[in-house]
Design a protein around this nucleic acid. Sequence first.
DNA 1: CCTACCGATCGGTAGG
DNA 2: CCTACCGATCGGTAGG
Lengths: 218, 218
Amino acid sequence: MATKGKRKQEEAPADRERYHHGDLRQALVDAAVGLIAEEGFSALTLREVARRAGVTHAAPYRHFADKEALLEAVAHEGFRAMAREMRERMAPHASPLERLHEAGVAYVLFAVRHPPHFRVMFGPHFTRPRSPPQMVEGEADAFRLLVDTIEAGQAAGLLRAGESRPLTLTAWSLVHGLASLFVDRQLDESLRGVEAAEALARVQTRLLVEGLKVPPRG
Amino acid sequence: MATKGKRKQEEAPADRERYHHGDLRQALVDAAVGLIAEEGFSALTLREVARRAGVTHAAPYRHFADKEALLEAVAHEGFRAMAREMRERMAPHASPLERLHEAGVAYVLFAVRHPPHFRVMFGPHFTRPRSPPQMVEGEADAFRLLVDTIEAGQAAGLLRAGESRPLTLTAWSLVHGLASLFVDRQLDESLRGVEAAEALARVQTRLLVEGLKVPPRG
DNA sequence: CCTACCGATCGGTAGG
DNA sequence: CCTACCGATCGGTAGG
């Protein structure tokens, strides 16, 4: 998500020079993301990625064994960024309910802002077994954040008691479903922008938190 | 979902003969579904589909202009089947809450039983604008069923009042998210089978219905 | 629905 | 990281 993809040919020599110093790997990841965003998955070939990065089609093999290895790097970057954005958004809040709400909104917003990453992270593009997301980083991943927050809410007597897993899966399903509907453009055109997505994510996550609350004795 | 794909070569002439009488179109749809299920999307080419259906690679063009047209047929079949399964499962129940629950379970079960259809229906595989799902059939589609059921629940005073759209989107997001997590194999291995899926769908949909209920005055 | 054929692209490797 | 090259496959069409 850092540097941008590069033009096709006519690179300034100074630019190309940098690839010899370690930028090419990231440039290839960026090129893959841009290519998916602009041309779709079917256009994603190692050769086209190489073209976008301004190198010949043999160069990527110095950094990635094959296309799947490149996609793994994209997914890794995505999981890392998503968890970071969730943490940042939860940090200012102390209440488990508020933290759960913010985590959900951040999950959806990440997907809306980074559809290629989201698609690679959760799509059917890997044939080799991958290390589960929770092992991706030393820091807590998105799923772990949800579990911990929900357990904190239960411990504080704010959320329905019992096993945390069903509640966590409910929360995950809701935000994952909403995110998927956005990314796959299944919602009305009026709901396409990031602002609309945030508004909708807020409403949905509010309903979620309400539904997971301890039911008031009635 | 009807007939099965056919072997590669050595067809009995009687079998091939049928293609001249109108079976090839469906055979191609079935072949595409089987190919996606067994080899993944990247293996889906019109030529391989033709091979599976036992015809030469030029034959499919008699029925589909291109790969996208074939996928549109798969999606159409999927939307139709999903709505039908939802209706069948809802039919025995009168209470809107029960009907909502059954609709949700049916949605998830359809995805778990027919991953290729689900992927084609909601995946990013179409470049041409498609007619929205709700227009796919004369009969009510999956989304319409959800909306109607929720509005019936509101009218009966069983579900939270107000606009039906946010509630519908919550329900849709939850079942779509759970379905997606299954289809994309994001859940633990212990949760892979259809039975596990149904059990989980039941729990999740129960939580959903609880959450959408009119909050008891407390 | 088939045979025959086209240009284009791809993954991958040798060898520097 | 590049040039040069390989076999394989694909979408699509002509012409029957």
